[in-house]
Amino acid sequence: MADVITASGLVKRYGEKAALDGLDLTVPEGTILAMLGPNGAGKTTTVRILTTLLEPDEGTATVAGVDVRKDPSGVRALIGLSGQYAAVDEYLTGYENLDMIGRLYKLGRKQSKARARELLERFDLADAGDRVAKGYSGGMRRRLDLAGALVAQPPVLFLDEPTTGLDPRSRSGMWDVIRELVAQGTTLLLTTQYLEEADRLADDIVVVDRGRIIAQGTADSLKSQVGGERIELVVEHADQLDQARGVLAGVAVGEVAVDEHTRRLTAPVTGGGKALQEALRQLDAVGVTALDVGLRRPTLDDVFLSLTGHAAEDGEDGTDSPAPTTKAGQQ
């Protein structure tokens, strides 16, 4: 498969601070690459460079073989962009928004109108299509914005944090749409702060921190780097810790960590709910009372801690933020 999106050695500085510091990435045709990272990591800057909104200080990038610096208008004819803040014209109706974009893509009056209706239908906005977008909910605006990016059926799509700020239902609706698009052959680069989102959607994930790629791989390989899922258990009495450790060791796939002070045990497991059920059954059998128990999946925080040694905070000094107790227990 050919690489549809390539970036090599991208550098973008704002004064002293480097928003991008030599970033490389490739996205093969018909796949989804997720850029995962906290605010300020350089995700949006990367998208803005690849969509010709911003010029890099150094480095090269191509979209479908077209150089973003040498032929930006050639790139613009091939891409769709849905930004972090839904770029919806509030004073127009949903239909007018899409029709306007279609006309600017030179679709022609008839085709543009038909396409607008078709997309409204597809994004569950048919009923709201003739209402002014000002009254739309956050989820509706995002859907309209994404529909706007799809008006000309671009073969390459950029979605900058498509679900940030959406409620869970809107989020999973958005995921369905994105999956459908890629099933149709679209190549997609998406940025996200949520590991779960990258996990659900992406073929490949790059983890970005301070303008550089610090890890790359499938969701599974990244998660195995941070230890996968684990059971966390807080027992009622300290004297039950040993018993509980014995039970958890039976279901765990690695060493069981114990924090005596908080009476918390952490056991890496595979098999998710099944492992938890099994552990609970055995704990019950030996008479250990759980004050709190749950299955914990790695979060972006865990990935970051594991990869960088600092937490996924906005600022430069994430190191002093409290580390999750599980990590403390494991070390």
């Binding site: 004819a77 091939l78 893509y105 030179k106 597809r122 671009p154 459908e180 052959g185």
Partner: peptide, 29 residues
């Protein structure tokens, strides 16, 4: 959200750029 798109659009619609840039700019305006 039923899929009503043509499966995979090989040639993007927008690739047909109008020949005359002035006419096209006026249209955009």
């Amino acid at each position: 959200m039923t899929a009503t798109l043509q499966p995979s659009a090989p040639a993007p619609v927008a690739a047909q750029r109008p020949s005359n840039p002035v006419v096209s700019a006026l249209g955009d305006g």
